[in-house]
Each structure stands twice: as C-alpha cells, then as structure tokens.
Amino acid sequence: MKNRWIALYVENQVGVLAKVSGLFSGKSYNLQSLTVGTTEDETVSRMTICVTSDDITFEQIKKQLNRMVEVIKVIDLTDMPIHMKEILFAKVKNCSVADKAELFQIAQVFQVEVSDIGTDSVLLECKMTERRNNELIDLLRSKFQQIEIVRGGGVAIESISTSCAGRSEYFRLSHQQKTT
C-alpha cells in the first residue's frame, strides 16, 4: 500500500465530481484527497486525486476512471516530476504574548504567511507540500492547545524542467514512509 497521484481531466458538468467520488466509495477505493477546478478550457475540469492502494487496485482505479464517459484523460503522476502544493490555514487560539512570538518564529522558518491576527489568536496561511503542511501541524499540535485546521488537498502539475524531479521524488518518498 502506498500513496499515488492521479491527474484527471473531466467534463466540466453537473454530477461529474459525484460520479468520480462515487466510484471510490462504491468500489471501496481508499481516497486520500481530491481537488477539482476548471482549466484553461472552461469546459474541462482537472482533478488531482491522491489514493492509497496496492499496485493491482491502482491499475483498476485508473481503468475504472478511464471507462467513464465524462473522463477525458487519466494521468498517473506517481512517477512523474511534478509540482505539488496544498493550501492550509492554521488558526491558533488562546495565545499568550509569548505564544504569538513563537508563532511568528515558526512562520518565519516555515516561510508561511501570518495572514491575520487578533487579541489572542493568530492565523497562518501556508502553501506548501502536503508533507510540509503535516509537519507544521504536528509542531503546532505539540506546542498549542487550541488549533483550527483547514486544508484544501494537494494540487499538482507536471514539471517543465527536469531539475525539480529530485524535489518531487523527495516528497513522494516521504509519503511512502508515512503510510508504510
């Protein structure tokens, strides 16, 4: 079992998201995250899907997606150089002055934005890889009591240059470690 990534081009129509997500529940495939948005062609949407599965099931998933009339193209990103980011908001509440200072430090090191602040709370806005986001969440959990997390799921695109292949490889390996 390991994490795998699919980019899926679909018709931008009512019900297509339900059909795709319904496939995963109906056939007991393990869906980790699914994001969707329109592309440069407004009649086409692109989904980034992360699933946890073994090799045989993953082959089935790709075939099952392919046979849907509304699916235009299935791309297996698992072994491709890609750029992948996930948006994450972390709101830390009930902060003391010292807490706030620490949060600013954390934000600086993680290179994330402090996008809002109140008398006793701080909002961090992160656009990092899922793994980096996970690490940030772990750190915040260890330090603070009241945290609110909202995350959007990974969005990925194929790389242009090959030099970033190493980067994506690094992220992928970390995912495998996490799930094994």
Binding site: V14, G15, A18, G22, G26, V69
Partner: peptide, 16 residues
C-alpha cells in the same frame, strides 16, 4: 434519478 443510478448506468445525465 441521475444521482441514484450513477453507478448502474453506462451514462446518465439531466438535460438542462
């Protein structure tokens, strides 16, 4: 009905 039959039809759509 389109929602209900999504997994048991080859294709289904509401004409809008």
């Amino acid at each position: 009905i389109v929602g209900m039959t999504r997994s048991i039809t080859k294709y289904g759509v509401t004409v809008r």
